[in-house]
Simulated scan of single mutants.
Amino acid sequence: MDRLDEAAISTRLGAVPDWRREGDEIRRTIVAPDFRTAIAIVNDVAEQAENMNHHPDIDIRWRRLHLALTTHDAGGLTEKDFTLAARVDAIAADHGATA
């Protein structure tokens, strides 16, 4: 998968407004209603990540999840990162989580 150029990254970030760019990663924090819901979100994200063979870094702190995406093989951000970010957003919304 090809690394996105700066213009493409800016455009794609507009479609996932809860994500912010930090260097060659995009990051998002999700606040779940409770710990059990946070774990359910992680499980659903894991399913999507496995299906895509694209795995985010996830840090779980009680009901707060910190996620980071990058495509290591490409050395930066690719379409895969933004596709998974949109899926994460849908999962979070389905579980009643907030940014």
Rank of each mutant, 00 (worst) to 15 (best):
A90L: 06
A8F: 03
R64V: 13
P17S: 12
R27I: 14
I60L: 13
V42Q: 03
A49Q: 02
D2M: 12
A46T: 12
E79A: 14
A7W: 00
D57C: 03
I9G: 01
I91K: 04
I58T: 06
T29Y: 10
E47H: 03
D94Y: 01
N53G: 15
L4C: 07
H66A: 08
A97K: 10
T71V: 13
I39Q: 14
D34N: 06
V42M: 02
T78V: 13
D81H: 13
D89R: 01
D5M: 06
T70D: 10
V16G: 12
E79F: 08
D89M: 10
R12N: 13
H72K: 05
Q48F: 08
E47Y: 03
G23T: 09
A99V: 09
R61D: 13
I60Y: 01
V88S: 07
E79V: 03
A92K: 05
R63M: 05
D73W: 01
A85F: 00
A92G: 13
P17Q: 04
H72P: 00
I60F: 02
P33L: 14
G96I: 09
T78G: 14
V88D: 06
M52T: 00
V42R: 07
L77F: 05
A85P: 01
I9C: 01
I60C: 06
T11L: 14
Q48D: 14
R36E: 12
P17G: 11
T71K: 08
N53C: 12
D34K: 00
G14R: 04
K80W: 01
E47K: 04
L13C: 10
R64P: 07
A40I: 00
T70M: 02
R64F: 15
D94A: 15
A46H: 03
A92W: 06
D18Q: 05
L69V: 07
V31C: 05
L84F: 12
D44V: 00
